[in-house]
Amino acid sequence: MADRRSFVADPVIAAHAASPLQGLKRPGEFGALTDDGPGVFLTERTGLSIGEVASWKDSEGKCRVAIRAVAGVMLNVAPGSGTAKLEINVFNFAPGRWLVAGTKPDLVAQLAGSVGEDGSVTDLSHGRVVIRIDGPKSRWVLSKLFAINFANTAFARGQGLATMHHDITALVQRVGEDAFDIHVFRSFARSFWSLLRRSSEEVGYRID
């Protein structure tokens, strides 16, 4: 694999970038609010570099090491394991496949360099939209959309998985006590965001 040119990502250029949620993210508090404050907080995580690392059938371990070298996080062998930190999130969502999202503009290029011929790295920085849902009612709201057990005992912090809401494919990572990042295809982002708002109305929500 001599030619790596095509692996090099096009970092998101902030000046030219447009979020698909433009016009839908009016900040404020909505829905049935109580004195306890909003049940959930919704945010779009912008300015992320997102790469998908996929190993060959016999190179999972090498890919894990390569991701660690770039992301600086340990990765477990167990399916779905991952780490969520402020500047970088990594999780395994399929056998031999990881999603790496972070704030470094050259993250994907770094991953491509580190993984080398032990797997493939695909830039998805433009192709996915990451929405964070946090707050005491996040599990309740997410349970309306996904047939996933969000209970603490079933869904460890840092862990990630792939699932769907009808036609909308989603990767979900638990990134905090009550916080989850949902990665959806860019083209579905507006529909999904509207759905999330609607589902959150009952518990009151805040958009920052």
């Binding site: 399916p79 779905g80 399929a94 056998p95 047939a147 998985l161 792939a162 699932t163 769907m164």
Partner: peptide, 11 residues
Amino acid sequence: CPHCGPRDLAE
């Protein structure tokens, strides 16, 4: 699913 665990038929 050996990777994802028990999931609904719809998936």
